[in-house]
């Protein structure tokens, strides 16, 4: 019950702030859209060398128009955008536990949350869940806009999609809890976490189902790389989401090896993350670093 009460409080707070600062919310979506469209153009039209801003704008329009009929371009563009969004989603969720926690310690909000009888884990679980829902809604709007702009069709299979988003969330918060626990004790670790968060943006952007087509016999090192990608919380999530949303795999995703990895990873990361967070929270109260920065 405690989780739902805290979640309700977080949801109301987020909604009030979004409504009260609606211009900032709207501008966030516009900036995200512009940034992603520029990114897509950069990826797909790397040969073009425009010289000024006006030329860039006109070339973006022409390129998108001329490539609209090209289905391969549309799929690639949407996959890149999806990968980038998932990367940003991972960046944000892990950031909630690292930079977010550092900021909370600085303002004293962390001590206030620690005074909640529901406990710090429940509070952060609810907080991250609301942040995830918020991010997913925002990214969905952006993805639909981009998909429409590049003339791609997204496959919105609700059941596989919801299952994948839940598993992605559990993968990420497990990792986030582990990093968050470390931040509680060693506040400066947040800077190191930044490097990991940046890796979280890159991996989903480039990873795809093609990792299963790698010629392991020719290059055994690729097996190690594939193994690492399976351990990273966002890689399998990106593969599955790209397959469902762009490739239209639908329910067949439940039989895919990446889906299996996602379940195993979700379980392992969440268990390890929460256990670490509990232990490190207790240690930070012993060291007196809970409210210190």
């Amino acid at each position: 019950m405690g989780f739902f009460l805290v979640m309700k409080a977080e949801l109301v707070r987020t909604f009030i702030i979004m409504r009260r600062y609606w211009f900032s919310t709207l501008m966030g979506i516009f900036i995200g859209y512009g940034m992603l469209m520029a990114l897509i153009y950069g990826f797909m039209n790397s040969s073009a060398e425009p010289t000024d801003v006006g030329e860039v704008a006109s070339e973006v329009g022409t390129a998108l128009e001329s490539r609209a009929a090209d289905n391969g371009f549309a799929v690639n563009a949407t996959e890149s955008a999806l990968g980038f969004m998932l990367g940003m989603f991972a960046f944000g969720i892990v950031g909630l536990f690292t930079a977010g926690l550092q900021g909370m310690a600085r303002t004293g909000e962390l001590e206030q949350v620690c005074l909640s009888p529901h406990g710090l884990v429940t509070n952060f679980l609810a907080r991250s869940f609301v942040a995830s829902v918020n991010s997913i809604i925002t990214w969905c709007i952006l993805l639909t806009l981009i998909s429409y702009s590049v003339d791609s069709q997204l496959h919105l299979d609700i059941v596989p999609l919801v299952a994948l988003l839940f598993l992605t969330y559990f993968n990420l918060i497990g990792f986030g809890f582990m990093m968050g626990g470390l931040v509680l004790v060693f506040k400066q670790i947040g800077q190191v976490a930044m490097i990991i968060r940046l890796a979280f943006i890159g991996i989903p952007l480039f990873v795809s189902e093609s990792i299963y087509d790698w010629d392991i016999a020719a290059n055994p090192f690729l097996l190690v790389v594939r193994g690492i990608l399976h351990i990273v919380p966002s890689a399998d999530a990106a593969i599955c989401l790209k397959m469902v949303l762009v490739g239209g795999s639908g329910y067949s995703i439940f039989a895919h090896p990446s889906f299996f990895w996602l379940i195993v990873n979700g379980f392992i990361w969440t268990t390890i993350g929460i256990a670490c967070f509990h232990y490190l929270e207790s240690w930070s109260r012993q060291k007196g670093t809970l409210g210190a920065y």
Binding site: G2, L5, V6, K8, A9, V12, R13, I16, I17, R20, Y21, T107, G108, E109, E111, Q112, V113, L115, S116, P117, H118, N123, G291
Partner: peptide, 30 residues
């Protein structure tokens, strides 16, 4: 059973009103 006011901390959330703050922290404290 304990209410705590710590020195120099931002106990309240500034974009919310006092009533909304009390509702938020009330829920957090069951």
């Amino acid at each position: 059973k304990v209410g705590v006011v710590l020195e120099g901390t931002r106990t309240c959330i500034w974009p919310l009103t006092p009533l909304e703050n009390l509702a938020y922290f009330g829920n957090l404290r069951d």
